[in-house]
Simulated assay, not measured.
Amino acid sequence: MKEAVPRRVILIVLDSVGIGELPDAGDYGDSGSYTLGNIARERGGLNLPHLEKLGLGRINSIIGVPAVPDPEGCFGKMAEQSSGKDTTSGHWEIAGVILERALPTFPHGFPKEFIKRYEEAIGRKVIGNEVASGTEIIQRLGEEHVRTGRPIVYTSADSVFQVAAHEEIIPLPELMRICQTARTMLTDELQVGRVIARPFLGEVGHFYRTSNRHDFALEPPHKILLEYIEERGLEVCAVGKIKDIYAGRGVTHHVTSKGNMESVDKTLDYMEKLEKGLIMTNLVDFDMLYGHRNDVEGYARALQEFDARLPEIYAALRSEDMLIITADHGCDPTMPSTDHSREYVPLLVYGPGLKKGVDLGVRSTFADLGATVAEYLETEPLKNGMSFYASIFEEDD
């Protein structure tokens, strides 16, 4: 009898790389959003030869990325069934959690009554309480923060409560304490997806964020894919903000990273060491540096830089590996808004032992991906999602 080879899944989430508006995009103010397609149109095309060979151009029309007749991967797109267009809800749905109610956002800042209670709880007045870019607000309010010791509270288009503080004014342990206090207090209609500690250093006019960020995530409402995998006795290796998004649940190893390319490096490190289980990576630069800042050229460059790394990932694959490339929502930098966009996300699946060129169609939920990973790694079935495992797996004769 042929000895079973340990199976691994390498799941890479290209944060915000959407592939066309969902039918209900208009309800979110996102009509016309198409992150990949609009970037390609605005610049006269994208050069993504390796994603092209996987079948990216077969999913939707993208200038410069033709629909190849014989893709090396399986391809399709997924609709988000959860309400909203948030990082947390997108990742949770991949892991089998579907939210009926969108996580709350605060386009006008948090209620004054809550801020007053929060100030009393942490023993400090705060400044800010507005929607802002994290890099911009520390330049604008950093001097006042240093002078007064008041932490900077702000939010974004995402469901987040962010607290920025200079590490020499509010030491990291104290910043973590006041963020944990916020996490405890933000309940019911104020129950944001993440409370984020945003420490920074530097002098007036030259403040910069440090790598000591920490996310205090909302707990998923029920068991997630990562926990099923851990319970099966397999490893779950998280790269980037994955551990924080899932509140650490099911994660057996994790590593932080700065930027997309370092995240790819650390993914490759795990691929060298991991025997069986899941490696899950979030490439945040697409969203954080380019989508939210309407930087079309930067976004295009980041896409091409990732594409150029795919041969290294292919070379590290073992015979029973499954590589999945997807996203969690859109963030179209060509649109007037700097918000996330309600879009389909691409679904590209490749592996030495998998079928090639299978059209996976339009999946009704991101949870189909999680259900497939669960079946491939032989865990218990997820609560949500329909596996496409049988469509892509080559059975032994």
Rank of each mutant, 00 (worst) to 15 (best):
A4P: 08
V9I: 04
L11V: 02
S16L: 10
G18I: 09
S31D: 10
Y34M: 07
N38K: 04
I39P: 14
E42F: 08
G44A: 09
G44L: 09
N47C: 09
H50Q: 10
E52A: 07
L56Q: 05
I59S: 01
N60W: 04
S61H: 07
P66M: 09
A67I: 04
V68P: 02
P71Q: 04
C74M: 03
F75M: 03
K77G: 06
M78A: 15
E80T: 06
T88L: 12
E93Y: 02
I94C: 00
P104V: 14
P104M: 14
H108S: 07
H108A: 03
G109R: 13
F110M: 13
P111C: 13
K112D: 11
E113I: 07
R117W: 06
Y118K: 12
Y118R: 10
G128W: 06
N129C: 00
E130M: 14
G134R: 02
Q139G: 07
L141Y: 03
G142D: 09
G142H: 11
V146Y: 13
I152T: 07
V153C: 11
Y154P: 03
A157M: 11
A157C: 13
D158K: 10
V160Q: 09
Q162C: 12
I170Y: 13
L172I: 14
P173D: 12
L175F: 10
M176R: 15
A182I: 15
T184C: 01
T187E: 11
T187A: 08
D188G: 10
Q191D: 15
V192F: 03
I196Y: 04
I196G: 09
R198A: 11
F200C: 09
G202Q: 08
V204P: 15
R213L: 13
H214G: 07
A217G: 08
E219H: 13
L225G: 00
L234Y: 07
V236K: 05
C237F: 05
K241L: 13
I242Y: 05
I242F: 08
K243I: 05
G250C: 12
T252G: 01
T252A: 04
H253I: 00
H254S: 15
T256I: 12
G259N: 12
G259D: 11
Y270L: 07
G277P: 02
G277W: 04
L278D: 04
L283Q: 12
D285L: 06
F286Q: 00
D287K: 12
Y290V: 07
H292D: 12
N294G: 06
Y299H: 15
A300L: 06
R301A: 14
A302Y: 04
E305G: 02
L310W: 03
P311I: 00
D321C: 10
M322N: 01
I325V: 15
T326M: 00
T326R: 00
D328L: 01
H329R: 01
P333F: 08
T338F: 04
S341Y: 02
E343Q: 01
G351K: 01
G361D: 03
V362E: 06
R363P: 04
S364D: 15
S364F: 04
T365S: 06
T365Q: 03
F366A: 00
A367L: 02
M386Q: 13
F388K: 00
